[in-house]
Simulated scan of single mutants.
Amino acid sequence: MHKPALPSTFDLPARDYVRVVMVETSHSGNIGAVARAMKNMGLGNLWLVNPASFPDETSYARSSGASDVLDHARVVSSLDEAIEDCVLVMGTSARGRKVPWPVMSPTDAARQVGEYQGRGQVALVFGRESNGLSNEELQRCHVHIHIPTNPDYSSLNVAMAVQVMCYEIRMEYLRGLENSENNPQLKPITAPGDTGWDVPAATVSELEGFFAHLETTLAEIDFHRRDNPRQLMTRLRRLYQRARPDQMEVNILRGILTAVQKSTSASGRGDGGRKQDQTNV
């Protein structure tokens, strides 16, 4: 049994006017993988031109919970039928043409898709696994989309190509939202203080307490000599300040230092322990 459909709001406006068209797909698993890629990015309008096998258990299994996309997929007998009511048709192509044709990158194509909201249906056409779209089929497209892959290994699985385009359409939508600069889906989370980080950044006072604790502990285990400090604490200070720890991380580090001090005291090492070579520190 295939997985039931996972909940989805299909939140992109493009859900209503963008269709993904797969031409003569030979492996039904790729249809399921495409449905998954579409649902990941908030799209769900799938058209299939003469698939070798659909519907079947393999396509549903590969959809991983995007079975609702497959349930509503349209199966038609020709590319003409799939695009006849569209005002813009964009076909993916990895090959150059003898007659130059308008070509766009996925990013530029997604931008144009966004511009067609409210103007009519848009089709994104993807070809066969073995040889893509024929010359005749490509000539039915207003624009060709070229994904700039590694020229030494340029072949993309059809589901990968669909994922690239669906991702670019989603990113174009998110960037166009009001106050998009504050959209949590677009903002990076790299350090304490960023929206989404779980613990506040450590204060200067908390870091200074840690540095004092660190220096004391290193002295107690004879790794640091206060009478001949060289640059040890300067370099350690630079290291930890570069890491920008949060309050919990500082507490963890101080807990480790406390455990080291207790262990050293219990073993009777203390100042009698072996001196560490600090020649290069």
Rank of each mutant, 00 (worst) to 15 (best):
8 S>F: 00
11 D>W: 01
14 A>N: 08
17 Y>M: 05
21 V>R: 04
21 V>M: 07
22 M>E: 09
24 E>C: 09
33 A>M: 10
38 M>T: 00
44 G>K: 05
46 L>G: 03
47 W>N: 02
47 W>I: 11
48 L>K: 02
49 V>D: 04
49 V>P: 15
53 S>C: 13
55 P>Q: 12
55 P>R: 14
59 S>P: 04
64 S>C: 11
64 S>Q: 07
73 A>T: 09
74 R>T: 04
76 V>C: 11
80 D>K: 12
80 D>Y: 11
81 E>D: 12
84 E>I: 12
85 D>T: 12
85 D>E: 14
88 L>Y: 06
89 V>K: 05
91 G>A: 13
91 G>I: 08
92 T>K: 09
93 S>W: 06
94 A>G: 11
95 R>G: 03
96 G>H: 11
97 R>G: 06
103 V>L: 12
108 D>C: 00
109 A>L: 02
110 A>P: 06
113 V>Q: 05
115 E>H: 01
117 Q>I: 08
118 G>K: 05
122 V>K: 03
122 V>Q: 01
126 F>M: 10
129 E>W: 10
133 L>S: 08
134 S>R: 12
139 Q>R: 14
140 R>W: 00
142 H>S: 10
143 V>Y: 12
147 I>M: 13
150 N>K: 09
151 P>L: 10
153 Y>L: 10
156 L>S: 09
163 Q>H: 04
164 V>F: 02
171 M>G: 00
174 L>W: 02
175 R>T: 01
176 G>S: 08
176 G>F: 02
177 L>D: 05
177 L>I: 10
182 N>C: 09
188 P>V: 06
190 T>Y: 09
191 A>D: 08
198 D>G: 13
204 V>M: 03
205 S>Y: 07
205 S>A: 14
207 L>G: 04
207 L>I: 11
208 E>Q: 10
208 E>P: 05
209 G>Q: 06
210 F>C: 05
211 F>G: 03
214 L>H: 02
216 T>M: 13
216 T>S: 13
218 L>I: 06
218 L>D: 00
219 A>W: 14
222 D>G: 00
223 F>R: 09
223 F>S: 08
224 H>R: 05
225 R>M: 10
226 R>W: 13
226 R>A: 13
241 Q>V: 09
241 Q>T: 12
243 A>Y: 06
244 R>L: 12
245 P>H: 08
248 M>C: 10
252 I>P: 03
253 L>M: 14
253 L>N: 07
257 L>F: 05
259 A>G: 14
260 V>T: 06
263 S>Y: 07
263 S>I: 07
265 S>I: 07
267 S>H: 13
267 S>C: 15
271 D>L: 15
273 G>Y: 02
273 G>I: 11
274 R>L: 15
275 K>L: 15
279 T>W: 00
281 V>L: 14
